[in-house]
Design a protein around this nucleic acid. Structure first.
Length: 472
RNA sequence: GGAGGGGUGACCGAGUGGUCGAAGGUGCUCGCCUGGAAAGCGAGUGUGCCGCCUUGCGGUACCGAGGGUUCGAAUCCCUCCCCCUCCGCCA
């Protein structure tokens, strides 16, 4: 979420950010630009109503304390006169208050819809074609014969059972079997041990979050389709809720439009999830400090956590989703930084090195992309992607995305720090990066390390974690 | 799931309708004292928003959340959430 003051004083910067981020889908630009204009109007109206309301509240308070004084002095007649004066004031205050609340609600809606402003150094571009390849590290392995894609290797060595996963749950929910499962556990321990050695505090987070948390990190309201949803309430609960609301309604409001609006708000409330299975550990780990004021001396905070992640990934198909390339449930170690706002780009470099060095330790060739404005997503101010080479598919697979959100998430979550004792609290900056996502790492390890005799050699650093050095 | 108790500022804790944004204490900041420190003494110390003559001043809201009663609510009423204790169930 952007700061209303930024929008108020630099509407052009905000509009430029909208154009830059939505360059790939121009239809949405006009709509969002209109929202910026509406926001300016709403803000203006909101403030003038507040000023007017507060003047009246002030008079009301004066009258009330006079009434109290008069009553104590026994001058009930005088007090009665004052009480009469307050009734009109009260009505005016109520009316103004309604306007203020409506404006505040609308203002928040509009603000939540505006994307973060990209850092000035981010390359301008519309699609992934415009991302900059900053560096390619390591050499692609060479093969005498055509290397196999990982889904053939997992079949051959009984490492992953996609079919039974599909039977038991659905497509995109594989079983890892035998050495496949042990390899996953090895990655888990390897990544967490590395993170701990690099100064991260290990966390085990809840795997479901509430809607407030999902909004805090930016999954709601913009990316609801990304997440699965859990409702605790039964159809009977829903029926009761609707019935109660209809009964409570003071006479039928006027006209279809009014009714329709009410129904829509009812549906929205009833459709909201009670919980969301996390799409990434970023959500619980960053929300850990939601609505807190952190002692400045405690910054930076660095957390790591292993969790499964669930994603709906609606509408994806084809070679992209073959094998381990894209799953509805996958495992990941996530790294999160909560830092002083002046330090966030330094922290981004550290975070980047933390992720990259893990790839280097595993001996996987990778490249680092600097994401352009159009491909970086709603909440980020700056984003790198790390992609590993997948020899069997002859393509690059994204295994980590490393982002600085600056104060965008912190403002939604109200995570602040106090620079000095007695100083005013300021928003922190938040960052996160995958360190790393397991399935594509597994795919690359299998494909890149396959041998002519059909065996797979595992990198040295994993041997002590797997208990085996190769898969025959 | 059943029964009961409770949610007040960074923390503890008073406050049951009228100068209560909230006593007292702890912590913290500054000053005095000291060779230095502790102790002691004195002063200060919440957040958001709005306005203005914008290193500050004024106003307003906030005592778990939302609604209600009242001229006036931390205090009374209703709904919800969370925490604790006991019983039951349970990986």
């Amino acid at each position: 979420m952007l700061d209303i003051e930024t929008v108020r004083s630099h509407p052009q910067r905000v509009k430029e950010a909208v154009r830059a981020k939505y360059a790939g889908s121009p239809d949405e630009i006009d709509d969002l630009l209109d929202r910026v204009d509406e926001l300016l109007e709403v803000d203006e109206a909101r403030r003038s109503h507040i000023t007017e309301m507060q003047e009246k509240q002030s008079r009301q308070n004066d009258l009330s304390s006079e009434i109290g004084k008069l009553k104590r002095e026994g001058k009930d007649d005088e007090a009665e006169k004052r009480i009469e004066q307050t009734s009109e004031l009260k009505e005016e205050i109520d009316a103004l208050n309604e306007k203020v609340e409506a404006a505040e609600t609308r203002q928040r809606e509009l603000l939540l819809a505006l994307p973060n402003i990209p850092h000035s150094s981010v390359p301008v571009g519309a699609t992934e074609e415009d991302n900059e390849i900053e560096e390619t590290v390591g050499d692609k392995p060479s093969f005498d014969s055509e290397p196999h894609p990982h889904w053939e290797l997992t079949d051959q060595h009984d490492l992953v059972d996609f079919e039974r996963g599909a039977k038991v749950t659905g497509s995109g929910f594989p079983f890892y079997t035998g050495r496949g499962a042990r390899l996953q556990r090895a990655l888990l321990n390897f990544f967490l041990d590395r993170a701990r050695d690099r100064g991260y505090q290990e966390m085990q987070a809840p795997l479901f979050v509430n809607p407030e948390s999902a909004e805090g990190t930016g999954q709601l309201p913009d990316k609801e389709g990304l997440m699965y949803k859990i409702k605790e309430s039964s159809p009977e609960d829903v029926e009761d809720e609707i019935t109660n609301r209809l009964l409570k309604r003071e006479e039928s409001p006027n006209g279809e439009a009014e009714v329709r609006r009410e129904v829509r708000s009812m549906i929205n409330d009833l459709m909201e999830g009670d919980f969301y299975p996390i799409p990434t550990a970023e959500v619980p780990l960053t929300n850990f400090h939601r609505d807190e004021i952190i002692d400045g001396d405690d910054l930076p905070l660095k957390y790591c956590g292993y969790t499964p992640c669930w994603r709906r990934e609606a509408g994806s198909y084809g070679a992209d989703v073959r094998g381990l390339n894209r799953l509805h449930q996958f495992d990941k170690v996530e790294l999160v930084h909560i830092v002083h706002p002046d330090e966030s780009y330094r922290a981004l470099d550290t975070l980047l090195r933390d992720a990259e060095s893990a790839l280097e330790a595993l001996g996987l060739p990778y490249r680092r992309l600097l994401m352009c404005t159009g491909d970086m997503g709603f909440t980020q101010a700056f984003k790198y992607d790390l992609e590993v080479w997948s020899a069997g598919q002859e393509r690059w697979l994204e295994v980590s995305s490393i982002s600085n959100f600056e104060a965008f998430q912190a403002r939604r979550m109200q995570i602040r720090y106090r620079p000095e004792p007695e100083a005013k609290p300021r928003l922190v900056h938040t960052l996160n990066g995958s360190g790393l996502a397991f399935p594509r790492i597994l795919a690359a390890l299998l494909e890149n390390n396959q041998q002519p005799d059909g065996t797979i050699e595992l990198p040295d650093v994993l041997h002590s974690y797997t208990g085996f050095a190769q898969i025959e």
